[in-house]
Design a binder for these strands. Structure first.
Length: 1013
RNA sequence: GCAGAAGUGGUGGAAUUGGUAGACACGCUGGACUUAAAAUCCAGUGGGCAGUAAUGCUCGUGCGGGUUCAAGUCCCGCCUUCUGUACCA
């Protein structure tokens, strides 16, 4: 073999690695350990695209590098194989999701293998494999059997809670629990029936069943977590989401809010990602204040004992309270509303219930609210404070009620202005006639009795003390984080190890797990609205046999119905990194030895889109498992890197029929069509509007109509004077169609439309024959957008080594970048040059590729310098994850060595090792040609030696007033004074100076000379 | 609105601690080889001005200021783009 036949070489080494289990990691070693992990992929039907391997290549380079550096490296891979797409596909085709999942996995594996990753496949996990999800179910049981003790600040077994209850009741138990938990004594506890006890314990468990307001997506037929909703529609599919109350499993992640926050300081994660977790947890410090509702004799509804609890971050402004606002959903609304206000309040509550969350979010400007007729008593002044309801107060945050301080909060100010409510000023020297004042730093409190003259910090403290004294408040920390809903009404997910006895959930004992997914006829919800598992006929738990039996046998004595929900997508991925440590262990989740040895992930690479989902949940579960003694660590991932997405360029046409025409009065407009005035500027706006990715999902269609409608209404008055043109818009043909292989010349320039008057009365119909416009957009790769570039094709044409190096060469790992094959030939020809370097007997030959040729002659000084320069740079680059620059470094090295005609083993051998993490196949081949019988992965990383880089002289750049004019070679051992002397004596210096005497000469030895004149 | 990241040739991007801006590659131009193409190799390539040329001058890292002998890099004030998040009390 003489030419670089990459296809043969790559297949050969991929087989070698598989056969010899080259990358199998052992759970014990004298070497230090290093754990490199990729976020495991969801095996979708589309297969891998060039974006997927980016992070895998980076982590593979790092893993291989660490092996060369003498580490015992764990680098596993697996599949996150439960999920919606397989199920959607099953619904459409009737195929079992298991089957499609397996097919997809096989395809993924084939593609991954072609890229030459050094994964230890003996440790592969699949979340949909019963042997794996047995442990997901096990963790669920552990959460169910635990409660969170705030005093000890950790999770503890529920049995300890039962002991506490039976000894002292619950009044002294400081636990994370449901807010409606009532107080009981030890005697009372012991008198409770076992069902009552279960009922109470459920309020304390870390995973609990509760009636929760959830995000329900009717089209998907399931609930969604907050992080699965983007802009008010489902992340997957883009369907609308509504609020609904349902009985759901939830995870008490809120118990860990503070730990999750504190832990961020101990891990090396990108700051933006830490910031988004911090914001998601949303800690705010303030006080909770209780207001007493003043009983109203005219209204039977208002009870004496009613109190309203609010959370505020500004207890210092308590004397500025001039009203209170409750969320329309607040439970007290119906209880305190006076008879006189009843109709109005009910109408408002009903209206706001109809408004979707999305509408409420979109419409933040409109101020609305209703007075309840009731008043609360100010805790210090005793003055009556009117209680309003308004939808600017969210039921889901804090207590769903606020004390409104219009002078200190813009929303309260706006509300007060709108409804003519008093705006008392409690700030010294501040004008609040135009807007509120919320600058804490410069606050001096006034008109506030005992708080007068104090600043924010002092007043806050004093106000809290006073409230505590009165028993009407205390300092409090509030979190935005909500408990995570854990139930999904889907088929293709982990079944809960739960059956129901008299409506109370019971755990299936661990020794009977896994509880495997039952077979169903269809993957749709039942006619009664039950989840797909409701269709399973063999889905009941026999407590005597401890096995799943036919539903007909349910007698609620020994045979009970099983849970019909399944677990969400993040269940399987929350602890998988630990299972890799000991993946085939059948006895325990992972052996203590394995866990103690591998500890946690040293380097995790994946996308930042998991910031508030997977990456938060996995930290939560890890902390919980640590509390319960199952894990030696309390953070799963030491270092995290987010790789940037590789984007694809998609071509699409907007099938929007737009006619620019003479104005037509609105009153004459045809039904179903919208007519109105539009100017050139607005035409451009609409154009931008439609070329954004707006038509990704059909649901958003209505928004463009709203947009145009609102525009027309706003312009009503102008319309009378406008003599320009109107817009005709036909909804039936408004959507975006992605197209394949469209020639750029087909594009109609949008700026032309805007400026060219001949288009004023033209009609743009988008079809094959007429004027149509193809737009291009760089966006996420997706099958439906026809912008997917497949790595297989690249491997076929250029080889995996080229693909690997090229993906790295594209730019910094963390940066998003559009995929383009434009530069790939550069990287490919580099590999050919590298190959040639080991095949060129420079002396005599023409430098052509011939047989393998490496000389045992000592290397030249220059070649050693090139080598060591490269070692130093590549090592630094890998440590800094700056893979793109080391590709350049290799190119420079090979170019230099080629011109130095270097074929010395002393240089070429270490060079092969240096490059092997990046281009492992060619490196293995060269290594074996060099006469080694072991894989190159066992070779130590070359050691950098400074001595080869030592120079005796330096070519100094000589600057005049900071501008480099010429260079001057000088020995490095000169003192600054000697350098200055030499520079001043140089004739080019005098030429520059033209007889002037420099004011100053700056000499930085070894760096630069600057002459200031 | 808030938080974060970024803005450098025709393009992707280098410049790690303030010290020669544009490494490396793509593309482009010219040349060699070839009947031709591909492949390969060689040379040139930020803009402007002057010069036959070597070369010299000048402008230049989103915009405007500043610090410094020296600024892509540091400081102040803006602009733009992207990403996340949002009536969070």
């Amino acid at each position: 073999m003489s030419k670089y036949h990459f296809n043969d070489i790559e297949a050969k080494w991929q087989n070698y690695w598989a056969k010899n289990q080259t990358f199998k990691a052992e759970n014990q070693s004298d070497k230090p350990k290093y754990y490199v992990l990729d976020m495991f992929p969801y095996p979708s039907g589309a297969g891998l695209h060039v974006g997927h391997p980016l992070g895998y290549i980076a982590s593979d380079i790092y893993a291989r590098y660490k092996r060369h550096k003498g580490f015992n490296v764990l680098h596993p891979q697996g599949y996150d194989s439960f999920g919606l797409p397989a199920e959607q596909y099953a619904i459409q085709t009737g195929q079992h999701p298991k089957k499609t999942t397996e097919e997809n996995i096989a395809r993924y594996r084939e593609q991954l293998d072609k890229i030459g990753f050094s994964f230890d496949w003996s440790r592969e996990v699949r979340t949909s494999d019963p042997d794996y999800y047995k442990w997901t179910q096990w963790i669920f049981i552990q959460l169910f059997e635990s409660w969170y003790d705030k005093d000890q600040d950790k999770a503890r077994p529920v049995s300890t809670l039962e002991t506490l209850f039976s000894e002292e009741g619950n009044s002294n138990v400081n636990a994370a629990c449901d807010t409606d938990t009532e107080t009981f004594s030890a005697t009372e506890w012991n008198a409770f029936s076992s069902e009552e006890k279960q009922q109470i314990l459920l309020k304390y468990r870390l995973t609990y069943l509760a009636e929760t307001e959830v995000n329900w997506c009717p089209q998907l037929g399931t609930v969604l977590a907050n992080d699965e909703i983007v802009n008010g529609v489902s992340e997957r599919g883009g369907y609308p989401v509504v609020r609904k109350k349902m009985k759901q499993w939830s995870m008490r992640i809120t118990a860990y809010a503070q730990h999750l926050l504190d832990g961020l300081d101990t891990i090396d994660w990108p700051q933006p990602l830490k910031d988004s977790q911090t914001n998601w947890i949303g800690r705010s410090k303030g006080a909770s204040v209780t207001f007493k509702v003043i009983p109203d004799v005219t209204s039977s509804a208002v009870e004496k004992s009613n109190t309203i609890e609010v959370f505020t971050t500004r207890p210092d402004t308590i004397f500025g309270v001039s009203f209170m606002t409750l969320a329309p959903e607040h439970e007290l609304v119906s209880k305190i509303t006076t008879d006189a206000q009843k109709d109005e309040v009910e109408a408002y509550v009903e209206a706001s219930a109809k408004r979707s969350e999305r509408e409420r979010m979109a419409d933040v400007k409109t101020i609305s609210g209703v007075f309840t007729g009731a008043y609360a008593e100010h805790p210090f002044t005793g003055n009556p404070i009117p209680i309003w309801i308004g939808d600017y107060v969210l039921a889901s945050y804090g207590t769903g009620a606020v004390m409104a301080v219009p002078c200190g909060d813009q929303r309260d100010w706006d509300f007060a202005k709108h409804f003519n409510i008093d705006i008392p000023n409690i700030f010294e020297g501040v004008d609040i006639s135009e807007e509120s004042f919320s600058d804490k730093e410069n606050t001096i409190i006034a008109n506030s009795d005992f708080l007068n003259g104090l600043n924010y910090a002092e007043a806050t403290q004093k106000a809290i003390e006073a409230l505590e004294e009165k028993g009407q408040g205390e300092g409090k920390i509030n979190y935005r984080l909500r408990d995570a809903v854990f139930s999904r009404q889907r088929y293709w997910g982990e079944p809960f190890p739960v059956y129901y006895k008299n409506g109370m959930p019971q755990m299936i004992a661990f020794e009977h797990l896994p509880l495997t997914l039952p077979e169903v006829e269809k993957y749709l919800p039942t006619e009664e609205g039950e989840p797909p598992l409701g269709r399973a006929e063999v889905w009941a738990w026999d407590t005597t046999k401890n096995e799943v039996v036919h539903n007909d046998l349910i007698d609620n004595k020994t045979v009970f119905p099983l849970e019909l929900n399944t677990m969400p997508g993040w269940a399987g991925s929350s602890c998988y990194m630990f299972r890799y440590m000991d993946p085939s262990n059948d006895e325990v989740f992972a052996s203590k030895e394995a866990l103690d040895y591998w500890e946690n992930v040293d380097l995790y690479i994946g996308g930042s889109e998991h910031a508030t989902g997977h990456l938060l949940y996995t930290r939560f579960w890890t902390k919980f498992m640590h509390d319960r003694g199952y894990l030696p660590v309390n953070e799963p991932i030491k270092k995290l890197i987010n790789q940037g997405m590789i984007l694809g360029e998609s071509a699409y046409m907007n099938r929007l029929k737009v006619t620019v025409m003479e104005k037509i009065p609105l009153k004459e407009s045809a039904k179903g069509k919208i007519f109105g005035p539009i100017k050139e500027l607005e035409l451009k706006n609409i154009d931008t509007f439609i070329s954004s990715s707006f038509f990704d999902n059909p649901h958003k269609k209505t928004t463009i109509r709203n947009y145009i409608e609102s525009f027309v209404k706003d312009e009503d008055v102008k319309y009378l004077n406008a003599d320009e043109f109107s817009l005709y818009y036909d909804e039936s043909i408004t959507n975006r169609v992605n197209v394949e292989n469209v020639n750029l010349s087909n594009e109609l320039n949008t700026s032309k439309i805007k400026n060219d008057h001949q288009y004023k009365n033209a009609e743009f119909i988008i079809d094959e024959d007429r004027n149509f416009k193809v737009s291009r957009e760089v966006e996420k790769m997706s099958k439906s957008k026809y912008n997917v570039v497949n790595p297989d094709d690249i491997c076929e044409q250029y080889g995996a080594d080229t693909l690997r190096m090229y993906e790295m060469f594209l730019g910094p790992l963390e940066q998003a970048k559009p995929w383009s094959t434009a530069g790939i030939t550069g990287v490919h020809s580099f590999l050919k040059k590298l190959w040639k370097l080991y095949h060129s007997p420079f002396e005599g030959g023409q430098g052509d590729v011939s047989e393998f040729y490496v000389s045992n002659e000592p290397a030249s000084k220059d070649s050693l310098k090139t080598l060591h320069k490269t070692i130093k740079k590549v090592e630094e680059d890998i440590e800094n994850f700056s893979f793109n620059t080391s590709v350049s470094t290799f190119m420079i090295a090979v170019n230099e060595l080629t011109s130095q005609k270097c074929n010395s083993r002393d240089v070429l051998e270490p060079l092969a090792v240096l490059i092997s993490p990046y281009a492992p196949h060619i490196a293995e081949e060269l290594w074996s040609l060099l006469g080694h019988s072991e894989s190159i992965s066992t070779a130590p990383f070359p050691v950098f030696d400074e001595k080869h880089l030592v120079e005796s002289s330096k070519e100094y750049p000589v600057s005049f007033n900071g501008k480099m004019r010429f260079k001057l070679e000088l020995p490095l051992d000169l003192t600054p004074a000697q350098i200055e002397e030499a520079v001043m004596a140089y004739d080019k210096t005098q030429e520059q100076l033209q007889g002037r005497t420099p004011k100053k000469v700056i000499v930085v030895p070894g760096k630069i000379i600057n002459i200031v004149g």
